[in-house]
Simulated scan of single mutants.
Amino acid sequence: MPPVKLIAVFAACLALLAADSPSAGHFLLTERGSSSDLEIAGMAAAVAPGTVRYISYERLLTLPQTTVTVTGDDNFRELPQKLTVTGVYLDVLQTSLGALPDANLLIALCSDGYRATYPREYVKTHRPILALKIDGLPVETWVAETHNDDPGTYFITHQDFTPSFSVLSFQEIPKIPAKVTRLEFATAQQVYGAIAPHPRDATNPQVIDGFRIAQQHCYRCHNMGSYGGTKAGRSWQTLGTFAASSPSTFERYLRNPKSIDPKSAMPPNPQIDEPTAKAIQTYFQTFATTTTTPH
């Protein structure tokens, strides 16, 4: 065979191999095929900006799995026994779904408006797992057989959790969202930047401590525009106004929300001491927009 034809055939073979070889995220779907499909959005190779892709439960089961014994997960605190959970480590999932190199933050969005943010350092330190099975059963089957509360088709947990830092009396808490419906790849600079202190407050240690606590804790249920959670129904500016107009009530709310609002879904935080409460309050006051207390 002439050299030119040989080269052409060789090039064609390489092209076929490239077409057949799996690439990260190649299995994402453009349309939902089932109500159990997990939504994928943000900075991923197979996801165009502003669009949503889907991955089925069955496809997730084909990714590298891990099985661990879970203890201390508050989603299952009423269960006396330990749970065996099978799922995919978030760092493995990020690679499998083709997260872009600059995507250093993973966001888990839940059906109730809760959002958990996972910076790269958190994922590396705590190895969170997207759970797919409990005690060898799909979550829906496990719930039906055990009559326990339903954490949804997808939830995120840890084999165990040891806080890696503290700010005043606040210790790092595990990020264990239930009823996860979407995973979104983003940057920490963009998402946390939305609630970062104003440059004029950047040298105030109380504001900085309050920010570090708020981005870990408050951001799960409270939003700044399109960032953060919406479960609480109170925005960052609303909290700022509350902190500025009623400081003592705001502090009481931090420690014992139901003492102020009996319908509040926010858990109590009795461990918050005075310096910690002051730091959170001082930080949020920088976002105040009015002088009236929210209702």
Rank of each mutant, 00 (worst) to 15 (best):
residue 9 V to D: 12
residue 14 L to H: 12
residue 21 S to D: 06
residue 22 P to R: 10
residue 22 P to D: 05
residue 23 S to N: 10
residue 26 H to Y: 07
residue 30 T to N: 15
residue 32 R to H: 07
residue 43 M to G: 02
residue 45 A to F: 07
residue 47 V to M: 07
residue 50 G to I: 06
residue 55 I to G: 04
residue 61 L to C: 06
residue 73 D to Q: 03
residue 79 L to V: 02
residue 81 Q to A: 14
residue 85 V to K: 06
residue 86 T to K: 08
residue 86 T to M: 05
residue 88 V to Q: 02
residue 91 D to S: 14
residue 94 Q to S: 15
residue 96 S to K: 13
residue 104 N to P: 02
residue 106 L to Y: 08
residue 109 L to T: 13
residue 110 C to F: 03
residue 112 D to Y: 10
residue 114 Y to S: 05
residue 114 Y to K: 10
residue 120 R to Y: 03
residue 120 R to K: 14
residue 123 V to A: 03
residue 136 G to Y: 04
residue 139 V to L: 07
residue 143 V to A: 10
residue 153 T to N: 11
residue 154 Y to Q: 11
residue 159 Q to P: 01
residue 160 D to A: 13
residue 165 F to E: 12
residue 170 F to W: 14
residue 175 K to W: 07
residue 183 L to A: 01
residue 183 L to P: 00
residue 184 E to W: 00
residue 184 E to T: 13
residue 189 Q to W: 04
residue 189 Q to R: 13
residue 191 V to L: 07
residue 192 Y to F: 15
residue 192 Y to L: 13
residue 194 A to G: 08
residue 198 H to Y: 12
residue 198 H to L: 13
residue 200 R to S: 15
residue 205 P to K: 03
residue 209 D to Y: 10
residue 210 G to H: 02
residue 217 H to K: 11
residue 222 H to T: 00
residue 223 N to F: 08
residue 225 G to K: 03
residue 235 S to C: 02
residue 237 Q to R: 13
residue 239 L to M: 12
residue 244 A to Q: 11
residue 253 Y to G: 02
residue 257 P to T: 03
residue 264 S to T: 01
residue 265 A to Q: 15
residue 269 N to D: 06
residue 271 Q to M: 11
residue 273 D to F: 02
residue 275 P to Y: 08
residue 277 A to Y: 05
residue 279 A to S: 08
